[in-house]
């Protein structure tokens, strides 16, 4: 429901300007494809897709990905990239798990630990990228290696967390009124979400507001669009890039804790490939890797599209694991080609 109002808002804006900009067109295509896909699934597959709980399940599964993808979009809007986020998520999971179970820390301390890891990552990577002008790809590649390696150094074997306060927090369900459904026995079951979803939605809205209406947010676009002109305008390009990387890593730290809340365990193989999913969601959401174009709402819809595809594939019955990867790739390919055709047509 929230999505459709967003769409109409976007459409209203288009009418006001009488001209569809590239960014808006990409966003509209993304939202349209997501809606077509989801409504199509509702009509042809029915079953679970008719329940609101299905959408909430997607949100719960992907809340960590939503947060990392938002961070990724910020960096990509400034023209950079950060592929260390998956590693940071795994590192945060493992460190928090060890701190809770082996060192008897309490939950707030472990949250601080997660934020601390993100902050440390952001400061180091942001400094190297922004002030030493090293390519962000290489730096975050090293960052990813480091995080993955450190995760196994912290603890090698995967294990489930037993800490009581944490399990209570993990199992907290927030009931969404009026969205439940009646099961086969005729009982009404409330629809629910978890804390991670709330965190993710707050972050999405916060970043959307920041990018659209604050000076910092606008300077992100300026730096990504043309850093030379941004410099001429008096924007501190280096500081802006630094802040983008800092925010991305801190968000990865938060995402790590949200992921930890969802899975409740520490493992070196957690969140493997999450950085690529985050990049893919950002791209599907209309963010250009060249910088200057992007939208947090688009990224959010991008994540939803990715996981809806996975959902559809598994409910159609193509349960051999490889079909998920292949369809996601095909979808990514489709979106990239559409984007490319649109942008090149505009250029001509």
């Amino acid at each position: 429901m929230a999505l459709s109002t967003k769409k109409s808002a976007a459409a209203g804006q288009v009418q006001k300007k009488k001209k569809i900009t590239d960014a808006n067109l990409l966003l509209i295509i993304t939202i349209a494809i997501f809606l077509i896909m989801y409504i199509g699934a509702m009509i042809f597959l029915g079953g679970g897709f008719l329940n609101a709980q299905n959408l909430f399940n997607i949100l719960m599964q992907q809340s960590a990905l939503i947060i990392t993808a938002c961070g990724m979009s910020l960096v990509m809007i400034t023209g950079g990239i950060d592929i260390s986020v998956g590693g940071v998520v795994a590192l945060v999971c493992m460190s928090c798990a060890v701190s809770l179970d082996y060192m008897n820390w309490n939950v707030p301390m472990s949250i601080l630990l997660a934020l601390g890891i993100g902050l440390a990552y952001g400061i180091v990577q942001g400094f190297l990228v922004a002030y030493l002008e090293i390519q962000p790809f290489i730096i975050s590649l090293a960052g990813m290696f480091f995080a993955r390696g450190m995760t196994t150094i912290v603890h090698t074997e995967p294990f489930n967390v037993q800490n009581e306060a944490f399990t209570a927090l993990k199992n907290t369900r927030i009931i969404v009124p009026g969205m439940g459904n009646v099961n086969r026995l005729g009982n009404y079951i409330d629809a629910y979400i978890n804390i991670g979803v709330i965190v993710a939605l707050v972050i999405v809205i916060g970043l959307f507001v920041m990018l659209r209406w604050t000076k910092l947010g606008r300077s992100f676009y300026a730096v990504g669009g043309n850093s030379q002109s941004a410099l001429m305008l008096g924007i501190n390009v280096r500081r802006t890039k630094f802040i983008a990387h800092l925010m991305c890593s801190v968000l990865a730290g938060i995402a790590g804790y949200v992921y930890f809340l969802y899975v409740g365990s520490g493992s070196a193989s957690h969140a493997s490939g999450m950085e690529m999913d985050a990049i893919a969601s950002s791209i599907i959401g209309g963010t250009l890797l060249t910088g200057g174009v992007g939208n947090i709402i688009g990224t959010f819809v991008g994540v939803l599209s990715l996981s809806t595809i996975q959902n559809i594939v598994s409910s159609v019955g193509l349960d051999e694991a490889w079909w998920t990867g292949i369809t996601v790739a095909a979808m990514l390919c489709l979106f990239l080609v559409i984007q490319s055709v649109i942008t090149s047509r505009k250029r001509d």
Partner: peptide, 22 residues
């Protein structure tokens, strides 16, 4: 299609091992 190489190859990166298994 003038897609950035890293992004374009992300497609095969996502699908490749699945295709190999298939």
């Amino acid at each position: 299609f003038k897609i950035q190489p890293m992004v374009a190859t992300l497609i095969l990166y996502t699908a490749g091992r699945n295709i190999a298994a298939w």
